[in-house]
Structures are given as C-alpha cells and as structure tokens.
C-alpha cells in the first residue's frame, strides 16, 4: 500500500458518498446517468467475484463489498425508489451501452492473462470500467451546465483514476516483480477520458468561486 493508492481509494469512496448524498438528500437523480451507474455495478460484480476465493487483505475485501453495495444501492434508488425514479430522464440518458458492453466482452475473451474463465471476466471488467463514465460525460455534455455536486462527483472519480496512475508508476519503480499491462492500458484510456472535464472543472472553480461547470 502506498499513499497514491490509498488516496485513490479514498477519492473513489468520496465519489460514492457525494453521489449517495446528492440523490438521497437532494431527492433527485437529475443529471446523473443511470447507464453509467449500471455499468459500474456490472464492473464491480464481475471483478469482485473472486471475493469467494481470493484474499489479499481485509482492507481489499471490505472495500470490494462496499463498492458492490454502494453501486447497487445507487442503481436501486434511481431505478425503483420514489421520488428519485421520476427524476431520471431516459430520453436524455440514452447512451447505447450495449455498444460498450459487447466490445468489452469480446476484448475480455481475446485479451486476458491466462485464458481461464475468471481472467476473461476480470479483463472484461477492467475494459468496461475504462469506458463506463462515457454515458455520464455524454449526459453532462447534452445538458451544457453541470450542477455543483455532480461536477464534484465526476471530479472525485477522475482524481481516483489519476492517483491510481501514480500508484502504478510508484509500484513499478519500487517493487522487484510488478507488471499489470492490461490494467495500465485500460487505466490510461480511462484517465484520458477525464481530461476535457477537468479542464472545464478547473475553469469554473478557479479563484475559489463555486460556479456550475459549463460545457461547450
């Protein structure tokens, strides 16, 4: 465990907290992509299947359960709970996620570590996580202006990815035996998707002002 990875995980947890607060306290899921949340639920449920046979630390196992629970709770609230379910707009949040899931499933089958079923599922989850934010980014783009909490949510997720990138660099240079080629590739793609958002986030938050983020 190094400081980059720890802060990355904390930033990831913070993103869940922000989103859960927003939809439970604010009673609205407006501006939040249910599609992205469903993709995250698929990502965590498939990657953390190994909860049943892999144990590396209590920290890891605990957070795996937390991630599955939080993403499931978010999907449940937006899809089934009143009044949140009435604030979700399927016409705005209509990104065709089958075009993300399909290619990621094929990539998982073809490009994985050692051709076992779990390695294929695991690689699929890594590829899908890389692109899971796209429906959310497209939704923000359509709306043009992004509510503060929503922008903090996306920023926390982006920070998590950036910190994980630093964690990989740190581990590569400090550990004798450490490679994660699939994760590095997908993680770099994933982090890249946030660059444009961060540019606009910085523009609207600089100078201590808390204006909503405006996207062109």
């Amino acid at each position: 465990m190094n400081i980059f990875r720890f802060l990355g995980d904390m930033s990831h947890i913070l993103s869940f907290v922000i989103l859960l607060l927003k939809i439970t306290q604010g009673k609205s899921a407006a501006g939040i992509s249910l599609r992205t949340q469903e993709l995250y639920m698929i990502v965590f449920c498939s990657r953390y299947l190994d909860l049943f046979w892999n144990f590396s630390s209590l920290y890891n196992s605990f957070l795996k359960v937390v991630f599955i629970a939080c993403s499931s709770a978010i999907v449940y609230i937006i899809r089934f709970k009143s009044p949140q379910k009435d604030t979700w707009n399927p016409e705005l949040d209509n990104f065709p996620i089958q075009y993300l899931i399909g290619p990621c499933a094929v990539a998982g089958l073809l490009i994985n570590q050692d051709w076992t079923p779990f390695e294929m599922i695991w690689a699929f989850s890594i590829y899908l996580e890389a692109v899971a934010i796209l429906p959310q980014l497209f939704l923000l783009q359509k709306q043009g202006e992004v509510e503060n909490l929503t922008s903090h949510y996306v920023a926390a997720l982006g920070a998590y990815r950036g910190l994980y990138l630093m964690n990989w660099v740190y581990r590569y240079f400090t550990e004798d035996d450490y490679l994660q080629r699939i994760v590095w590739f997908a993680g770099t793609v994933q982090t890249g998707l946030y660059i444009d958002f961060f540019y606009h986030y910085y523009q609207s938050k600089r100078g201590g002002l808390s204006r909503p983020v405006k996207l062109p």
Binding site: R5, D9, H12, D50, N54, S56, S57, N60, L63, K64, F67, Q113, W122, Y164, N167, R171, E175, D176, D177, Y178, L179, Q180, R181, V183
Partner: peptide, 10 residues
C-alpha cells in the same frame, strides 16, 4: 524480468 502482479488492487 518482471511478472504480472497478483490481484491485490481494487
């Protein structure tokens, strides 16, 4: 020569 790491990250 480095090897693929065990799955110890989230």
């Amino acid at each position: 020569q480095k090897n693929e790491a065990p799955k110890d990250e989230l």
